[in-house]
């Protein structure tokens, strides 16, 4: 049995994040950590340390699919690991992300009302008004939280889906953050 370190328990943070967003949507802002930490680590010479060590979501999939046996453990289809699909998915993710930022801006500017919904898989609007109690923060802050939580929940659901169908951490194959950090590493280590 290998020695366990504190960072082997970051899957708890991943579960906690999803639960907290169920009770108060403002916790969704914490998800920005999962965006900035991997990028900063990659930019400042730590390469893919986030994926390799700290990614709580990866650990969660590994636990559910591995120890809990919720995965068929089959090979992912070939197209999923091609550059075309991975970059395509990254671009798609970016477009959806900017659309979410645009919605936040519309609420900020007053052109649109706050929508207390979590959009799953970019399509299904789930009612989520119970997680919205605070009216002390500006509306756009809450709108961003709803939008960001939608991104996180959607990617978790996709990850669970491919976890069940294929290997536990299939999400890692097409994870937009992973693709992005690998791209950063490619650029950084180009001149050799």
């Amino acid at each position: 049995m290998k020695q366990k370190y504190w960072y082997d328990y970051l899957w708890i943070a991943s579960v906690a994040y999803l639960l907290l967003g169920f009770f108060n949507i403002l916790f969704a802002w914490l998800g920005l950590l999962c965006f900035f930490i991997p990028l900063l680590l990659a930019i400042f010479g730590k390469d893919k340390l986030y994926c390799n060590r700290y990614c709580g979501r990866g650990q969660l999939f590994s636990l559910l699919g591995g120890r809990f046996g919720l995965s068929r453990k089959r090979d992912v289809p070939y197209f999923l690991k091609t550059k075309a699909f991975r970059y395509g998915f990254l671009i798609f993710f970016f477009i959806m992300f900017f659309q979410m930022l645009w919605n936040t801006y519309l609420v900020f500017s007053g052109a649109q009302d706050l929508r207390q919904v979590v959009t799953l898989l970019w399509t299904f609007r789930l009612p989520w008004q119970w997680a919205y109690q605070v009216e002390t923060v500006p509306l756009w802050v809450s709108q961003f939280a709803f939008g960001f939580y939608s991104v996180m929940l959607t990617s978790t659901v996709l990850g669970i889906l491919t976890m069940v169908l294929f290997k536990p951490r299939s999400w890692c194959v097409y994870c937009p953050m992973g693709t992005m950090t690998q791209l950063i590493c490619q650029v950084k280590h180009q001149e050799k």
Binding site: D47, N52, G58, C172, V173, G178, Q182, C185
Partner: peptide, 19 residues
Amino acid sequence: VACGCCVKVCPLQTIVVQQ
């Protein structure tokens, strides 16, 4: 994809993610 899953399971710790 350099995810590092292999590094975690290697009993001899002889696989690394390079750069």
